[in-house]
């Protein structure tokens, strides 16, 4: 299913004995047989114990190949892999901050939080209205206990500005404690981490890095933390924002 910004939501039927993934975990997918590496995709949903959902943005050869896979074809996946988000405490609001395709990393968490009727605010940002993936989060429900807000850089939908500005705007209005969950471009993650730290709120981020083995063997996908390099595949992909060393130089793009 095409969803927006050249992104696709895939549903894979998995065997009955397939282990239930936890929000934050990912799978390593063989997108094209001739490629040297699998591609890691966050679990974006898991239904009835049989349907694994992946939200994939086309960025290159592998994702393009996967997007063009025929309906009904068999896909080779490895996983679920990696660690998971820490569920919010009973008294904590969950604040989800997703930038662009970062929705893929938080969607499954949002669904779980909705089922649990946990107090949740999901913030989704993108460049412009047509690119927004907020509709992939569950519909707002639960008498306002679960809400979704959007931000666009050009103001064509929702808050006019960065999703991190929306976060700063909203954070002061939250009642009680909150726990922040973020997934998106490095620059956004860095800003979310800064805001969380300034507000004294716990914050976990789902980090993306090019991966080879996916099981912590090759040390290829490391993320810099206060305690040294840690693998995104095994030690992560979820990291405590306070542990991360997020340098401006590592932000995406020129």
């Amino acid at each position: 299913m095409t969803v927006a910004r050249d992104s696709y939501l895939f549903t894979l039927d998995v065997p009955r004995e397939y282990p239930e993934p936890q929000p934050g975990q990912f799978v390593q997918v063989t997108t094209l047989a001739e490629l040297v590496l699998r591609r890691p995709f966050s679990v974006a949903g898991f239904r009835d114990g049989r349907h694994l959902e992946l939200l994939v943005e086309v960025r290159g050869k592998g994702t393009r190949g996967f997007a063009e896979a025929e309906y009904g074809s068999t896909v080779d996946i490895l996983g679920p892999l990696g660690n998971a988000f820490t569920p919010p405490a009973e008294a904590e609001s969950a604040v989800l901050v997703a930038g662009g395709i970062g929705v893929a990393g938080l969607r499954y968490l949002a669904e779980k939080l909705l089922v649990e009727a946990h107090r949740t605010l999901a913030l989704v940002g993108d460049r412009t209205r047509d690119a927004l993936l907020d509709h992939l989060f569950p519909e707002p429900a639960g008498g306002g206990r679960y809400r979704v807000m959007t931000a666009t850089d050009d103001g064509t939908a929702g808050f006019h500005g960065a999703v991190t500005s929306l976060l700063e705007d909203q954070i002061g209005r939250l009642e009680g404690n909150a726990r922040i969950y973020a997934c998106g471009p490095r620059a956004m993650v860095r800003e979310v981490a800064r805001i969380a730290s300034a507000s004294g709120l716990p914050c976990e981020v789902l980090m993306e890095e090019i991966m080879a083995c996916g099981v912590g063997a090759c040390r290829g996908c490391v993320i810099e933390t206060e305690g040294g390099y840690r693998t995104a595949c095994k030690d992560g992909p979820v990291f405590d924002a306070a542990d991360l060393v997020l340098a401006e130089a590592d932000d995406d793009g020129p």
Binding site: L37, A212, Y229
Partner: peptide
């Protein structure tokens, strides 16, 4: 400690790695 990331890059018919003997 090994090299600073990114440590991997897939290329045509190959994989580049610069793990740095971590």
């Amino acid at each position: 400690e090994g090299n600073r990331p990114p440590r991997l890059c897939e290329t045509e018919a190959g994989l580049l790695n610069a793990i740095g003997l971590e």
